[in-house]
Every structure is written in C-alpha cells, then in structure tokens.
C-alpha cells in the first residue's frame, strides 16, 4: 500500500498533500483536546506503536503471511484523531528513514492510510458497536470496519493510480507516471486486498483488540456520544463517493480507443500491483488470469469483479461469524 515516488504525478501528490493539511490540523487539535491525561507522549508513542505493528507478520491459514496497516486498530484504541496523527508520523518516518513509500507521495500515502483507514474503519466499528450490545458485536464491528477500511484505502490508491494516464502524458501521448487506467488499476489493487490483505487486517486488528479488551478494558478509547451524528455523515459521504470513483473510471475509459482497450484486456492478464508486504508466497498472476475472460470485452471483467467482490464480502462475514463462534466455544 505504500506508494513509491514516480507512480503518481507531482500534481497529484501536491493535491493529496494539500488535502491532508486541514485533516492534520483538525486532528492535532481534537487529539489534544481528547486525550486528557497523557497528551503528547501518547501521540508520539502511538506513532511508534503504529510503525512497529506494520513490522509484524500475520499468519494466514495455509502458512502464508503478510503485514497489516493497523489503522483501524489504532483508531479503536486511541480514537480516530490521534490515530491519524500517529499513523502519519509513522509513515513519515518510513518514507524519510527507511525509503518505504515516496517522499513526494507522502501526502497520498497519508491520505489512504492515515485518513481513510482510521476514520472509515473507526466509524464503521462504532456504527456496528452501537447497534449491538454484546462484546462479540463489538469485535464483529471492528472486523468489518478494518476489512472495509483497508479496501477503501486500496480503492483510493487505485483511483490515484488510475487517473494518471488521463492527466499526465507527454507530447507523444505516452503516460509519464502510472500507465494503467482505472479499468486496470482498480481490479489490480482491489482483488488482492479483498482476497488476502483485507483478512490480514481483520485477523490482526481483531486479535490484538480482543486481547487488550480482555486484559485491560480500561485502556481502550471511549469515544464521545455526540459524535455519532458525524459518523453517519461520514459514512453517507463515503457511500456517495464510491460511485463517484466508478463514474470517474467510466470517463477515463472513454478516452481510450477501442484498440487500446483490447490490448489492456490481453495485457492485463499478467499485470498486477502487488502491495509491498504481499510479494512473498502469493501469486497474483494466477488470480488475475482467472479474472480476465478471454475474448470478452473488458467491462465484463469489471462487472465480474464487482459481483465477485460482493459475494466475497458476504462469504467473509459468514466465515467471520463462524470463526468468532468457534473461538468463543474453545476458550
């Protein structure tokens, strides 16, 4: 999920960075107002914690591993405002001191991982938690929140990638940055996240949160009641935004000639953006080869991926419920 430099145009980076400035300003103010006792140190140590949890390899059934972003987890533990600051600082340290994620792309990375994930994840979690009174409901809310949030972040990254060929070309019409349009970037980003990365996030988030809740329930952030209205507002905003993404993909499509689309469909077979943490032990090619149906127009693939995604979501929820139940039984 860490976007390196030169995948996005400097203009895109500037816009994303500018979009983050008010978010950071408000978050810093809110976080300071909210975390009453151990104010500043908790932000710094929260950033260290955020950095470190990205170092853990999470086991998946079958022996595969991958690493989580943990944005939803930190939001549930420290509140979304503090989480935004903590994850941003962690990302900054990664970009500056470890070369992980671009320096120019820092704004975009912060938008995806320090804004979208903590806020969306947290609000979904609070929404579901507010509807159920059982501790299991809380964990399910957290699982659903973390799953949807990381996928929304992947979608945002995909849109950032996908608009590049439309907005940045040289005189010969060649793309200057990410060369793939939305029709390619969205499935390439979303499929691995829906299938693998989302579950890594869920396992990690729920596992850690369940432990803390059991061991030291008082350490978990208790959001103020009044913010429920804002939660609805944000969810509505996000729901409205997602068709916008689809719409944008439609227009970008239109710019491509029929010849090109055919090429995308065939070339797309081998294409994939693999998030850095997921390169080991996971074959994206095999997945995508199944995804593009040869001899059929590209848009069918898109619809297929949407249907598959929706189906996957349902399966996820069912399996997740099953998992929670068996865990309760064994413990």
């Amino acid at each position: 999920m860490h976007i390196p430099d030169n995948y996005l145009s400097p203009a895109t980076c500037a816009v994303m960075g500018a979009a983050m400035v008010p978010v950071w300003a408000i978050s810093a103010r809110k976080a300071q107002a909210e975390i009453s006792r151990a104010k500043v140190p908790l932000l710094g140590i929260g950033a260290a914690f955020s950095f470190l949890i990205m170092m853990f390899n999470v086991p998946l059934p079958g022996g595969t591993t991958g690493h989580a972003v943990g944005g939803t987890l930190i939001a549930a533990l420290l509140g979304p405002w503090a989480a935004c600051i903590a994850v941003s600082v962690a990302l900054l340290i990664q970009a500056l001191l470890f070369g992980d994620g671009g320096i120019l792309a820092f704004g975009a990375n912060a938008f995806n991982m320090a804004f979208v994930i903590p806020f969306l994840g947290y609000f979904i979690y609070r929404f579901i938690k507010g509807r159920t009174s059982s501790p299991r409901g809380e964990l399910i809310g957290l699982g659903v929140g973390s799953y949807l949030a990381i996928n929304m972040a992947a979608l945002c990254a995909a849109i950032e990638f996908g608009i590049q060929p439309a907005i940045a070309r040289d005189a010969a019409g060649l793309p200057l940055y990410c060369p793939y349009p939305l029709a390619v970037s969205i499935p390439a980003m979303l499929i691995p996240h829906l299938v693998v990365a989302g579950f890594i996030e869920v396992f990690f988030t729920v596992g850690v949160f369940a432990f803390i809740k059991r061991v030291s329930p008082g350490s978990v952030y208790e959001g103020a009641r009044t913010r429920i209205q804002a939660i609805y507002g944000l969810i509505v905003a996000f729901v409205c935004l997602s068709p916008l993404g689809l719409l944008a993909s439609g227009t970008a499509w239109g710019e491509w000639g029929a010849e090109e689309i055919k090429n995308v469909a065939t070339g797309g077979k081998a294409l994939g953006y693999v998030p850095t943490g997921m390169t080991n032990g996971f074959s994206l090619k095999a997945l995508l080869a199944d995804y593009t149906v040869p001899g059929m127009p590209e848009w069918t693939g898109y619809i297929v991926s949407a249907v598959a995604g929706a189906a996957l979501l349902v399966i996820v929820f069912k399996l997740f419920g099953l998992l929670r139940r068996s865990e309760v039984e064994t413990s």
Binding site: A38, V40, P41, I45, F204, G207, V208, F211, V215
Partner: peptide
Amino acid sequence: GKTASLGGIAGTLFLKSKEMAEDMYGAM
C-alpha cells in the same frame, strides 16, 4: 492459536506503550 499469540504480543506491546506514555507524561 497463532492469531491469539500474535494478538497477545501486539496487545501487550500496546499496553506497555500506554504505560510508558503515562510515565513519560508524569516525568515531563
């Protein structure tokens, strides 16, 4: 219970972080 073990480690790490943050604030 691999996920539980990992949850225990990262969870303890968080509790330790929070404790350290409180100590640090006190010291400051």
